[in-house]
């Protein structure tokens, strides 16, 4: 027989960007331990709707841990207590009957709250738009096997490219730094031979945009790595720092862009 639990949900309610916002508390009964965390929120929504209230707004889409849309801090930890797990992949079996669960939006200055748990993460897109690409016009590519890439390098690039752009690293960081996000993209593209041509330009442009969007600097605290649902390692930040130092040096003598 499936096990169920009763819960108290303490969740952030905020009408819009300008509203001050506050916590509200709701009781939920008979939540299956096999349900996902977001299914639990679905049930809360239905309960609120039945009572004539607006449901809690939250971002979510694929519900299989890959789209990066879900974004909530659960009991103080972005994406909740399970390591390497997005909120949508978190299951209720990790909670217990009678527990109070506190849910908040990402708290970071560059991510203003739109409503309840929904925040605006477009600054992350802007960092990518500044340089997070390898220019290769459709139709201009050479044969895919023309340039062998050592397996180790391809694997490393893939480790970095696993980032889902959810912003948990920013939410977890006391400085609201986006270094892990930016570092992962820089490490992915700068390490591949295809990405070498734009390496310095990319690194400088992405860091400049990152700073311009109001993200803080990295002070090596490591909260980002702990919160990252894809377990992207801090090494990516080291990679970024190294490539940034080289790019700046080159830029000093001769502008790279």
């Amino acid at each position: 027989m499936e096990k169920t639990m009763n819960l108290t949900i303490r969740v952030w309610r905020q009408k819009n960007r300008l509203d001050v916002g506050k916590f509200a508390e709701y009781k939920l009964a008979n939540i299956s331990e096999d349900s996902s965390f977001l299914e639990m929120l679905d049930i809360l929504s239905e309960q609120l709707v039945a009572d004539g209230h607006e449901p809690v707004a939250f971002d979510h889409d694929c519900r299989e841990g890959i789209c990066g849309m879900c974004s909530m801090t659960i009991n103080g930890i972005p994406h909740g207590p399970e390591s390497g797990t997005t909120a949508c992949q978190l299951h209720m079996r990790h909670f217990h009957d009678g527990q109070t669960i506190t849910i908040e939006p990402w708290r970071a200055k560059p991510f203003p709250v739109i409503k309840d748990l929904v925040v605006d993460r477009t600054p992350l897109d802007k960092i990518i738009q500044a340089g997070g690409f390898i220019t290769a016009r459709a139709g201009s590519a050479v044969d895919a096997n023309a340039m062998p890439i050592a397996k180790g390098i391809a694997d490393y690039a893939m480790d970095a490219a696993a980032c889902i752009g959810c912003g948990a690293c920013v939410a977890a960081c006391p400085n609201a730094s986006a270094m892990l996000f930016t570092g992962a993209k820089v490490a992915h593209m700068n390490s591949l031979p295809q990405g070498k041509a734009e390496k310095d330009r990319r690194t400088l442009a992405m860091v400049t945009t990152m700073d311009g969007e109001g993200f803080g600097g990295c002070t090596n605290i490591g909260e980002c790595e702990a919160a990252c649902p894809k377990s992207i390692p801090l090494d990516m930040i080291a990679h970024l720092n190294r490539d940034y130092a080289v790019a700046q040096m080159k830029n000093f003598f001769k502008p790279v862009a």
């Binding site: 690409f133 390898i134 290769a136 459709a138 139709g139 201009s140 590519a141 050479v142 895919a144 062998p148 890439i149 050592a150 397996k151 391809a154 694997d155 690039a157 893939m158 490219a161 992915h188 593209m189 591949l192 295809q194 990405g195």
Partner: peptide
Amino acid sequence: QCVANGVPFAR
């Protein structure tokens, strides 16, 4: 195209 764009396919 995808390799040129930096897609890290398995190798």
